[in-house]
């Protein structure tokens, strides 16, 4: 006979909650796909890369749904930011773990922690009011791929630094002693033993940062000018996939709305592909 008791109830309730929490991400993916279907069916997936441009409203015959320039802008902004953040973040992490005097290291680490918590809209505000006019004075119009890269760089830097510091601190001191016993100086031990030993953690930090940069909306939206075009130079304004959604969802209807969800789907696919690509080589090496 089934006997109801509080243990059973606890197991049932918590089990249900866990399943519900696990289903949310599937619901998100499912709904974004569901909302993309009308556009994908009516237009076909190819038109999102071959159309003349992005003109989702107006005369039906003249409409175009090309997302390619925005995919390019998204990738360029994120990769540019990471190219700056990776070496600088590693050096700051090395400073924090190797060279920082205690009196200086603690406040700097606290400051980096604070920067990690600054909302993206505040980074965007600073970029819009301070950085963009500076770039405009040098190379108009200012709101550009470059300002997007710089703001994103500053935004993902704390992520890179904090995760790299954690990876470097996780390297056991015995490895350093072994390196010293082999006659390596502190610098040699750092670059040839400690950093390679922390490689996995550092790679994780960079993947996390790149995924954040790809998915970032507000900071980029506020500083890149939002013109849909293939950029010819760092000083051209661009519009990313995320900015496109944020700018147009408010008034989009029918196919236009559905096309924006296709953009969201593409964005999620980019992030997923990145995470998978980062997992693959590690798996391969483990099995080798």
């Amino acid at each position: 006979m089934f006997r109801w008791n509080s243990d059973r109830a606890l197991a049932a309730v918590t089990g249900l909650a866990a399943r519900l929490a696990a289903v949310i991400v599937l619901l998100i993916i499912g709904f974004v796909i569901l909302q993309s279907v009308p556009a994908l069916q009516e237009l076909g997936p190819v038109r999102f890369f071959t159309d003349d441009g992005w003109y989702p409203t107006g005369e039906v015959a003249a409409r175009g749904y090309n997302l390619a320039p925005m995919v390019v802008a998204t990738v360029l902004c994120a990769v540019g930011a990471l190219l700056l953040a990776a070496p600088l973040g590693l050096l700051v992490a090395v400073w924090l773990t190797e060279y920082a005097p205690a009196a200086l290291g603690r406040p700097v680490e606290a400051l980096v922690g604070l920067m990690a918590g600054v909302p993206s809209v505040v980074y965007g505000l600073w970029g819009l009011v301070t950085l963009v006019p500076l770039i405009a004075a040098w190379q108009p119009p200012g709101a550009s791929l470059l300002s997007g890269i710089l703001v994103l760089f500053l935004m993902v830097l704390p992520t890179v630094i904090l995760a790299t510091v954690a990876a470097l601190r996780a390297v056991t001191p015995e490895w350093r002693m072994a390196a010293a016993a082999l006659g390596m100086g502190p610098t040699g031990a750092l670059w040839r033993v400690v950093v390679p030993a922390a490689r996995g953690g550092i790679r994780g930090a960079l993947v996390l940062a790149l995924a954040r940069a790809i998915g970032e909306t507000m900071a980029v939206l506020m500083v890149t000018g939002n013109v849909v075009r293939m950029p010819d130079s760092l000083f051209d304004p661009v519009r990313t996939l995320t900015a496109n959604i944020a700018l147009e969802l408010a008034y989009a209807v029918d196919l236009h709305r559905s096309a924006l969800f296709v953009g969201g789907l593409l964005l999620a696919a980019l992030v997923a592909a990145l995470v998978l690509a980062a997992e693959r080589p590690r798996e391969a090496r483990r099995h080798a």
């Binding site: 949310i24 998100i28 995924a211 790809i214 998915g215 909306t217 995320t242 964005l267």
Partner: peptide
């Protein structure tokens, strides 16, 4: 779920 970009949460 932790890796989903915030704008996709907005769409959802």
């Amino acid at each position: 779920l932790a890796g989903v970009p915030s704008i996709v949460f907005g769409l959802f």
